[in-house]
Write a protein that binds this DNA or RNA. Structure first.
Lengths: 341, 341
DNA sequence: AATATTCTTGCAACCGATTGCGTAATCCAG
DNA sequence: CTGGATTACGCAATCGGTTGCAAGAATATT
């Protein structure tokens, strides 16, 4: 369609070009553009002026090589537990958006890696490639061991997720155990006794929610029935998963605690389609409080994770770790948001 | 919490270390790891072996500097038209996910830039920083001129969006004009005559959908009423926008064509809350066909954009452009998905 | 006016790879 | 056994910046 202007010199400007235009050495240009105060203001301004009007931009490869830092953070999303390749949970979008804000605000860039079928050593390669200064992992998926191994020698690593047993890596997340308990207690308080649990149990954060669920049941003296637990992926794309399977198997239940809002919303939809009224016949509680939970009809009751705060904490911890301070994990309190289900 | 093993040497391995371990020069190691056939197989395998077991990973900064390519693609999301900082439209998530697949499949990485308040020169800086080999822009937002300017001298740039008037940059997108017409024709076929249009008209793709809307009205001999057009952002966070304003202003309408599914879904919700039944009183058609449109109750009728194909085309065009072939824009056909609204 | 001090600015080494070119080693035919 | 072709591999330049060190210029001190 269009062609780059062929009269434009093909070779990109380098610092030496600016230097010769100004009549100084590259040392001076480098220092001037870095705002080093040893360069007199007048000269610095002249250099900045010329650099700007000639469209010069510092080569980040060269700069990174010399300075041994890239100003890039790797955000990795492992999808070991997902069958499909797609990230469909809006939770990720909101998280990515928040992280992008925090990272950009600190003058860094965000390298996004979707790790679909985690190969051994993916984290090692990420950490050692020198392409990034730190790594954020969103969700442990089934990569607990890989994370532990990497944390052994790589400091600037922060993981969003549950405080899994024996985790030696730094995590940020809500108290999943408390969240699971809160959700279950809420359902119990509504008089529900046969509460189904839906979620992918391989993920540590889900496992903790499940523990909270068990704990609340036990505390209320309600017998735990294993047939009420259905493993799913984070998205309910496959009808052989989740509520539908419970219905098909003839399991009777009067409430659903879903490990994510997406599962919860899909459950509501399936229940409605099956003629089971929500919330009169079956109550549903989700987890995350994605934007959608509030907007759907009926609006989903859920356990809220404050992602803005979570993202800020993750980035804060990561930068402290990049600075050599091996900051510890942080846990935030979730809250119950009662809506219509 | 945990501390990186302090007995581990602090300095990272470089190629020279591997070279001396094997007893060859860095040239040989470099060639061996690159799979260069001039290195005998036996030696290559020995080098690979040692590199692997010592956990060596090539420094991408150095490699990039020397080779003048980074194997990174910049995916930029300009949000000039958005008031808030948040990307909330799931459209972006699906698009990012698809692009990530395509880019990863070619052995490249994805640098994600959320361009919240576009400063002059943001694209220039991106292109000249040598941090990436190519740039994909998701949505033109209000950055049409900036894109045109950059395309003048920067080849590897592909934009998702509408084929805006006077665009000299390479775009991939659905035929927004046809999509707007299809949506409107569908509503007209249902007998609707007072069809409202909701969307952010600064974005070229939305402007084209709007043209299609006008065209369909004209073709059907239905008078165009400017009071039926309400400008919004891509998300309906502000109640002073969209349907609610039409209702408040007492504008009568029997259908809504929303420029995105998110606007459409929010409209359905507001209409329901206002006691206007969908679809008996008011019909609604959205645009995008995000996963949510299918799952919501009632399921949203919409114009489908095939994002899997779109992402594949964008990446294909970008790689051809990176190879110096200035491939032209591509346009795909949207399709009408009739559901319950 | 001579010396001490402070300002400016450039030289050159370095970051860690890749690669053109040249040479030593090996092979093969005559 | 020798000359020429081939193979294997290392030297050193290069990519484009940053920065310790030091020299020369300008200013201050006595």
């Amino acid at each position: 369609m269009n062609a780059p202007d062929s009269s434009e010199p093909i070779r990109r400007l380098k610092m030496a070009d600016i230097a010769s235009m100004v009549g100084v050495s590259t040392s001076t240009v480098s220092r001037a553009l870095a705002g080093n105060p040893v360069i007199p203001q007048a000269l610095r301004e002249r250099i900045e002026e010329i650099a700007r009007e000639s469209g010069y931009v510092v080569n980040q490869q060269a700069r990174g090589l010399r300075m041994q830092r890239t100003h890039v953070i790797n955000v990795a999303i492992p999808l070991g537990h997902e069958s499909g390749q797609l990230i469909s949970d809006p939770f990720f979008l909101e998280m990515i958006g928040r992280l992008a804000d925090e990272i950009t605000a600190r003058g860094y860039e965000l390298l996004l890696s979707k790790v679909a079928a985690p190969e051994a050593g993916w984290l090692e390669r990420m950490a050692r490639s020198q392409r990034v200064d730190g790594v954020l992992v969103i969700g442990q998926s089934d990569q607990h061991d890989a994370l532990n191994a990497a944390a052994e020698w790589y400091g600037p690593l922060v993981v969003w997720g549950g405080a899994a047993e024996g985790a030696r890596y730094c995590t940020v997340g809500v108290d999943n155990f408390a969240g699971g308990r809160m959700a279950t207690e809420h359902l119990l308080a509504l008089g529900r006794r046969r509460i189904a649990f839906l979620g992918p149990p391989q993920a540590p954060e889900v496992a903790l929610r499940y523990e909270g669920y068990r704990e609340a049941l036990a505390a209320a003296g309600v017998a735990y029935d294993p047939t009420l637990t259905a493993t799913t992926h984070f998205t309910l794309s496959d009808p052989s998963e989740g509520v539908r399977r419970l219905i098909d198997e003839g399991v009777s239940f009067d409430a659903v605690f879903a490990a994510s809002d997406l599962i919860g919303l899909e459950s509501v939809r399936i229940l409605a389609a099956e003629g089971l009224e929500v919330p009169s016949t079956v109550s549903v509680v989700g987890f995350d409080d994605i934007a959608l939970a509030r907007q759907s009809v009926p609006a989903l009751t859920t356990i809220r994770q404050n992602l803005a705060e979570g993202a800020a904490r993750m980035v804060d911890l990561l930068f402290r770790r990049m600075a050599g301070d091996l900051a510890p994990s942080a846990m935030m309190q979730p809250s119950l948001i009662v809506r219509q289900t």
